[in-house]
Design a protein around this nucleic acid. Sequence first.
DNA 1: GAGAGACTACTCGGATACAGTCTGTCCGAGTAAATCCGG
DNA 2: CCGGATTTACTCGGACAGACTGTATCCGAGTAGTCTCTC
Lengths: 161, 161
Amino acid sequence: MQLKNQVEWALHCCAILAGLPDGRYLATKDLAELHGTPKEYLSKALQALSAAGLVASTLGPSGGYRLARPAAEISFLDIVEAVEGRQRTFICTEIRANSPCRPAGFCDTGPCTIARVMWAADQAWRDHLAATSLAQLSHMLDAELDPDLWAATGRWVAQRV
Amino acid sequence: MQLKNQVEWALHCCAILAGLPDGRYLATKDLAELHGTPKEYLSKALQALSAAGLVASTLGPSGGYRLARPAAEISFLDIVEAVEGRQRTFICTEIRANSPCRPAGFCDTGPCTIARVMWAADQAWRDHLAATSLAQLSHMLDAELDPDLWAATGRWVAQRV
DNA sequence: GAGAGACTACTCGGATACAGTCTGTCCGAGTAAATCCGG
DNA sequence: CCGGATTTACTCGGACAGACTGTATCCGAGTAGTCTCTC
């Protein structure tokens, strides 16, 4: 069970977009160059973000993407679910029902006990992702790690918008 | 991102094996019949459990599988990791390093900030799975849900070992 | 009756096949800004 | 100099292809009990 690499790309792209001046857009081409990813494929991830309403796009020259909401109102979970979908990681196919010793007309009293444990773990994962916003990420990048690279990236982006 | 259905099968099989009399084995054929799964493919999941040391097998007639440890010492995480592998769900490919504005000879100060958030969520998921043991699951099945089906299943299994 | 050999039922592992998803590419349609051209 | 037409640069969406993984089946090798046969 692995998240697709588009999730990683989408997260990094959103981190960049969170630092954009108000009202400016950054093109897919620049995002792809910045991260060394194939432009056309990265575009799929950005389209998913757009479909989920996390980013807004504009056509034409000086077009591209920007965040559709303040960075504080976009969580990691929003981005992961936009790319991966909202389905639970554990699918219960109710194999209980296949039991040869199941009494005739037996009616299940509720969701499979095993599924409930798995779903609770899934929820713990989602809760953790929902607790971190893009604004917090920007703050971490500013303060904690790689301030030089992050600042240089900011200047590089500023030239393009 | 979805867990494979072998994970579901493995969990249900372990729940059955946890109720087995000491020293007795249950054959793949019976486990497959009980859950309505293809025997040969289910066998792959059981082999994975065996490779991880969670279950023990014996050949020959009256052979099959049993738990290799007390049910209280086998967690959901053990089973999930046996089938799915121990890799983290989020793979960081360090796309930071592809940045065209990365200073020459720049040395990363540590793991990617985004990866650290994703890994922390991953850990929350694993912690939750590690907190539930097969013994607890047996207790839940006994007490909370479907006691009729669970008891009937116990009798069905008892005839086979 | 005892021991050796054959038989049976099972696990294990490899080979194979098919479908679906992931990854990646290509191209045409549509759109908004910039540019150009005619009055 | 101004307004409309053209060009340009981008997004969007679909079509397509290759690689990989997940799902599933089949079969032969090996093993541990059981049965049979011979002495």
